[in-house]
Every structure is written in C-alpha cells, then in structure tokens.
Amino acid sequence: MLGGLLDFHFMQNAYLAGTLVALLAGGAGYFVVLRGQSFAAHMLSQVGFPGAAAAVLLGFSPVLGLVAFCVAAALAIAWMGRDVEAGSRVESAAVGTILAFSLGLGLLFYHLYVGSAHGMFALLFGSVLGIGDRDVALTFAVVVASAAALAWAGRPLVFASVDPDVAEARGVPVRTLSAGFLLVLALAVAVTVQIVGTLLVFALLVAPGATALQLTARPLLGLAVSVALALAVTWLGLALAYFSDYPIGFLITSLAFGLYALVRASRAVRSWA
C-alpha cells in the first residue's frame, strides 16, 4: 500500500521539504519551549503574512516581504525585551501587541488586494503538495545554515535560557544571544512559511519541543526527541493526507497535539497514582 506514496514527484518534494522543515522546527522548537517563548514563535510564524501581502501589493516577491516583516518583528521583540528574561511578562505583552498590529496590517493589505484570495490562503495553510525543486533547494540551504548556528551556540543558549544571571557572569553574551536566537528563528520561519504555511511551521515549532520536555529533562536527549517527534508527525501526516481526503495541516497538527495531550495525561496519571 505504501508503494504508491512516493511515486509522484510532487510527493517526493513534499517529503523532502517536510523533512527539512521538521528537522529545523523540531530543533529550534526545543529551545523555544525551554526559553518559554512559544508566544514569540507564534507571532513570528504569523507576522510574515501581512509582509507577503504587502510585497505582492507593491509588486515585489512575497519572500522579500516575509523576510522583512519576520526580521523586523524579531528585532522589535529583542529590543522591547532587552532588559528582561526571555519569556517574561513584558515580552509576551510586546509580542501580543505586535501580533495584533500585524494581523490588522494583513487585513488592510487583503482589503487593498484585488486579485484572487488563493495566494493568501496558501500562505496561511501552506501548499505542501505544490512544492517545486527550487523551493526544496532554498529550504535545504536555510535549514543547514540555521541548524549549524544552533549547534554552534547550543550550550551557551541553554545556559542563557535556564540561568541567565550566572551565564552572564560566566561571560555568555546573554542579550546578544537572545536577539540572535530570535533572528535565526525569524529567518528560518520566513523561508519555510511560504512552503509549508504558517499553521505547519507553528505546530512543528511548539508541540514536539513541548512533548520532548515533558518526556525528559536531559538537554541533548530532549533535543533529539523533539526532532524525532517533528519528523514522525510530518511523515505520518503526509502519508495520511495522501491516502485520505483531509488537509495535511489538520492531520499534522492533530498528530502533534494528540502526542502532547497523551504525554501530559500519562504524566498526570503517574504523579497522581
């Protein structure tokens, strides 16, 4: 039965791009959850939408608008939260304000845009079955660069995430690292969003990391579990979508949510028993 799954080129590309995005989102997502920045990740995965709409309206490539808006939002969060720990109240208030404004801008550009709404829909919910070879190559480049940056800065980033005061005293540039992490996240999201859509990027950025952190408190193992879960739900979701009529975004988010709910429930039962 699975023999037919990879017969078509578009499915091969969907699996390639999906795998790459899952690798990156699963890895970066571990840090997102550890740092308590799920809401910032949510904002970053949505904020590109008005950017792309603005670019289309002005006659530029949507990628340009995506990158510009994501990077601007990341810098704004880094600056507004410069004196506080990642994931603090001040940061989440700033994130919420920027997110609401960006959705308002999205509404404006949608209103001004006279063309078909299909492009907007693709941006929000992805068009993973319509991925070209150039998209795969671009995704590959972004994933390799971001993964290398995260691997290189991984230890200081964990240190700065769990114990910022001591990390700073030991010479870790905590604020620069915080801004750098958001920037890498913004670039990665900007490029992957146009391929798999806002919904999938956000789902893969939070649920696997959150599930992994429930399962283990070892950093390296947690990172590996997060990546493995992101890959598993992406592969399974793509296969289910191929053999059924349901949208991929729904299937992958449901799988991710189901795993998280299962792990939370089993931990609750164990601590209660």
Binding site: A151, R155, P156, V158, F159, V166
Partner: peptide, 11 residues
Amino acid sequence: LGLDGASWGVP
C-alpha cells in the same frame, strides 16, 4: 553548564 556552558561549538 558551570564547566563548559559558556563554550561555543558542538559539544
């Protein structure tokens, strides 16, 4: 982290 948490590079 107190031992090598401030070091860059792949552990």
